[in-house]
Simulated assay, not measured.
Amino acid sequence: MPIACARHILVKSKAEAEKLKQQLAQGADFGQLAKKHSQCNSARQGGNLGEFRPGQMVKAFDNVVFKKPVLTVHGPIKTQFGFHLIETIYRD
């Protein structure tokens, strides 16, 4: 079964997620933005969620982490928690 490690930034609005994604595209540090803006408890670790397997996260999140390119920021992805910017660090 595959395993992956990802980090994310969770915010309340799509507009806020788009704004943060623009900052990332201009070279902002993902971890620093996560610490400052993310609503998730993982913000303290720069958005790092550690390792997990398919099915441990909500479906929309899993689809990005296990199917989209690694080391690319994807999003905004909407879930019941809000809007995510997701970066898969590695996947085996």
Rank of each mutant, 00 (worst) to 15 (best):
P2L: 11
I3C: 11
I3D: 09
I3P: 01
A4T: 06
A4F: 08
C5Y: 04
C5W: 03
A6V: 04
A6F: 04
R7A: 05
I9D: 00
I9S: 04
L10G: 02
L10I: 08
L10F: 06
V11M: 07
K12W: 12
K12S: 12
S13V: 10
K14F: 06
A15L: 11
A15P: 01
E16T: 14
A17C: 14
A17K: 09
E18G: 05
E18L: 12
K19R: 08
K19L: 10
L20A: 04
L20Y: 03
Q22Y: 15
Q23E: 15
L24A: 03
L24T: 01
A25P: 01
A25E: 15
A25F: 03
Q26K: 15
Q26I: 06
G27L: 06
G27W: 02
G27Y: 03
D29N: 15
D29Y: 09
F30K: 00
F30S: 01
G31C: 10
G31Q: 14
G31P: 05
Q32M: 09
Q32F: 03
Q32L: 08
Q32C: 00
A34W: 02
A34C: 03
K36T: 12
S38V: 07
S38H: 01
Q39E: 05
Q39I: 08
Q39V: 08
Q39P: 01
Q39T: 08
C40S: 12
N41T: 09
N41C: 04
S42I: 05
A43M: 05
A43D: 06
G46W: 10
G46E: 09
G47Y: 05
L49Q: 06
L49P: 00
L49G: 02
G50H: 07
R53S: 09
R53P: 05
P54Y: 05
G55L: 14
Q56H: 09
M57E: 14
V58G: 05
K59H: 12
K59N: 12
A60K: 13
A60V: 10
F61H: 15
D62I: 14
D62L: 12
N63E: 13
N63R: 11
V64R: 02
V64L: 10
V64M: 08
V65Q: 03
F66M: 04
K67R: 10
P69L: 09
P69I: 08
P69T: 05
P69Y: 04
V70H: 02
V70F: 02
L71N: 11
T72E: 08
T72W: 02
V73G: 05
H74I: 03
H74S: 10
H74N: 07
G75T: 11
K78E: 14
K78G: 10
T79A: 14
T79Q: 11
Q80D: 15
F81G: 02
F81H: 13
F81N: 04
F83S: 00
H84A: 07
L85T: 01
L85W: 02
I86G: 01
I86R: 00
T88I: 00
I89E: 11
Y90T: 09
D92I: 15
D92N: 14
D92W: 13
